[in-house]
Each structure stands twice: as C-alpha cells, then as structure tokens.
Amino acid sequence: MAPPVLPAVLRHHLAALRMLLVFTVVTGVAYPLLVTAIAQTGFSHQANGSPLATNGEAVASSLIGQNFTLPKKNPDDPNEVPRPDPAWFQPRPSAGGYDPTNSGASNLGPNSTKLIADIRARRAAVAAFDGVSPASVPADAVTASGSGLDPAISPAYAYEQVDRVAKARHLAPAQVRSVVTQHVQGRELGFLGQPRVNVVELNHALTRLGHPSALRAGR
C-alpha cells in the first residue's frame, strides 16, 4: 500500500511536531529526572531546600525568610498588621509578607512618593522599636528585598537589635551579641556578595537559649 501523500506544509509541521515531542522527552523529562536523581543522592540537604529543624521537625528553610511577629490581636481581621515581636531579630520589610507562594518586590520607583513615605514610616518605627536614633537605622531595615523572602540582614541591623532582643529575653546583651557575631557571614570566597546575618538561622540559634513564648507567658 502506498503511503498517503501529505501536502508539503503539513509534512513540515508534522516533522516539527515529532521533533518537538522527541525534545520534550529528552530535555523535559529525562533531563530533570536525571538531575533530580543525582541531586537527591549526592546533595540531599540542598536539593530539599536546606531545611532547619527543631526536634526533628522542619521549622524553616534557612534560605527563606520568615515573619517574627506577635500573634494578631484579632486573628480574623485581615487589615490588622501584625506587630514585630521584640524577642526576635527582625528581618527586612517584605513586599509579600514572607509568603513563599507570593514572592516578589515592591517595584516602587526610585522617586515614588509612596515608597518614600513607607521608608520614613519604617525608619521611625524601627528607631523607636530598637531604641536608636532614626539616622543610624541602616538601609536594609527600611527597604524591601527583591524576592520578599530575603533571609538576611546587614550585620549593622543585626547588632542594632541586640539590646532589644536581650531585654525581651532577659538575657545579657553580650550573650546575644556573641550569638550574632557567630552568625555574621563574610563574603563568599572572600569577595562575593556582602557580609550579612541570616535572621532565620540567628533566631533558630536563639531558640536554644530559651523559647520566647515561654518567656512571654511568664511575663
């Protein structure tokens, strides 16, 4: 039986479709599965999102920032802005509220009046919260990150918060400061990126000095 003769245009597109399916199998299925297999075998911690655990229970990914806020007064009020918990080191402001299903930036422009107002308000709030002069509040404390999930703050902002955290936790400031100092990460390979403190890891380390909810309950 003679094969059916297709018009040239159709033949072209049919060949294209077959090639696309072949590539889909090779690059769309085989490739990610191969990488996953190697990754899960060789680098399972990283491949699974660098989790931080407490008592064997994952409480964070050390790469993803979290909120360290007090419980809402009225959990059902969507308009209530949760207040920062003084017992924790505070991360940067986030455009998405540290929700990994809603990553992103504020996208406010360099002369945005809204952003300027936000920054001024944050500066005043942070200065009051940490008991420092507004002028000394570092830039990362008043600006949102690109991802809205930035786990890190500048060492300056971390040290600024030491006294407040120590006070809230009834700890000696020197003790808290030494934890911070242990958590200051230098530039990678000595020259990449910026020195920083991972707030999630820092706060996770603080839990070993006593859990704040217990403190709060006793207050």
Binding site: L52, A58, A60, F68, D99, P100
Partner: peptide, 24 residues
C-alpha cells in the same frame, strides 16, 4: 544544587515557623 539550589518534587507544604506561625 551543590551550592544550595533545590531540586525535588515536594510540592507546597506547610511548616510551623520558628516564631510559632505558619509558612507554606
């Protein structure tokens, strides 16, 4: 991956955060 990028098929999952909240 070795440098920290994830590679899994976990989907979204909830955790109880350090400060006692929830995060997906």
């Amino acid at each position: 991956v070795a440098a920290g990028v994830m590679q899994n098929f976990h989907g979204a999952y909830d955790i109880a955060t350090i400060a006692g909240g929830h995060q997906t």
